[in-house]
């Protein structure tokens, strides 16, 4: 079976900091949460996978195709940043179908195809609204729908609920879980909270100083806790 994401000795440099070399394989349908302290390299990892940063060495494969040298638009990766980054001059509907516009496809047809996702996320009543009129949780859901509307092979979420209040956080996490159950989209989700990770993922990776400090099944966290000091600190075990 083809892996949805493979990282092969991936290294990314940013100034004096170096992420990697990292290896990772995600099977289709996997949901991996990546945790790490601030400055551990999580955002660099996401940017390298999305093609927004060029790795200094190593290779990235998405859905069995090497994408290391490809521009972001050819990688078939869905990306949801922490800020949601909705286009403020476009309605919610046009935000969601932006990928169709970019590809020169029919936007109305793309919106119709996204109906199941919109129903799960409860976005139908918001389609004509502008991003400025949405709550934080609604904005993240729109960003999620926008990413999924491009039918990506891999979904990358960069701290999607970190800036939200508790009810919105619960609502978005529930939507992520629900969507994953229904669509089975391979997901790499960066966050800071183990509670959030437990709510959505079945695999966990912990990065410390640009290296994997721990990576395994979520259930193994309790049965075989990590030995790496940074990972233990992050999980509150020390």
């Amino acid at each position: 079976m083809t892996a949805a994401l493979t990282l092969e000795q991936l290294c990314v440099r940013a100034g004096s900091f170096c992420l990697g070399p990292l290896d990772l394989t995600l099977a289709a349908g996997d949901y991996l949460v990546v945790m790490g302290a601030t400055g551990a390299g999580k955002s660099l990892l996401i940017k390298a996978i999305c093609g927004l940063l060029r790795p200094s060495s190593g290779r990235v494969w998405v859905d069995g195709r090497e994408v290391t040298g490809l521009p972001p638009r050819e990688r078939r990766v869905g990306y949801v940043p922490q800020s949601a980054a909705l286009f403020p001059h476009l309605s919610v509907a046009r935000n969601i179908t932006f990928g169709a516009w970019a590809a020169g496809r029919d936007e109305a047809a793309a919106l119709a195809q996204s109906a199941p996702v919109l129903a799960v996320l409860g976005l139908e009543p918001l389609l004509e609204r502008r991003p400025a009129t949405l709550s934080g949780g609604e904005r993240q859901k729109v960003a999620l729908a926008r990413a999924l509307c491009t039918t990506p092979r891999l979904l990358v979420l960069d701290e999607p609920v970190s800036a939200l209040d508790e009810p919105s956080r619960r609502s978005v996490c529930a939507a992520l879980r629900d969507l994953h159950v229904r669509i089975g989209m391979t997901t790499l989700h960066v966050c800071h909270s183990l509670e959030e990770a437990r709510a959505v993922a079945h695999r966990l990776g912990i990065i410390a100083a640009g290296q994997w400090a721990w990576c395994g099944a979520m259930a193994a966290i309790d049965s075989a806790p990590p030995a790496h000091p940074a990972a233990r600190r992050l999980l509150g075990l020390d």
Partner: peptide, 12 residues
Amino acid sequence: ELEAVAMVLGCS
């Protein structure tokens, strides 16, 4: 970040 998102969504 808006430009970055647009490019990941398929824009040149």
